[in-house]
């Protein structure tokens, strides 16, 4: 799964630690999500969507469905 978390965070000039704090997770988790090594759960994805005031699809994209 691809995501735009790093871009969105950079646009707002936030650090990974600040985003982690806002989403109530560890900085390591934000780092892993940004690198595409860990896929967040649906509740966490919704939380991120609420934080960035966007839809989940605008932040997270399923690579498989894009290929189809």
């Amino acid at each position: 799964m691809k995501n735009r978390l790093k871009v969105l965070r950079a646009e707002r000039d936030w650090t990974q630690a600040q985003l982690a704090s806002a989403l109530d997770v560890s900085r390591q988790t934000i780092n892993a999500i940004e690198k595409g090594k860990f896929d967040p759960s649906l509740p966490l994805a919704f939380k991120a969507a609420r934080l960035f005031k966007m839809s989940i699809e605008d932040i997270f994209q399923d690579e498989v469905s894009e290929e189809i």
């Binding site: 650090t15 704090s21 109530d24």
Partner: peptide
């Protein structure tokens, strides 16, 4: 939330510690 904020107070981190 700005980058200039030096101290990041994370509830998660505090509770976890």
């Amino acid at each position: 939330m700005s980058k200039s904020e030096k101290v990041v107070t994370s509830e998660y981190k505090t509770q976890n510690n």
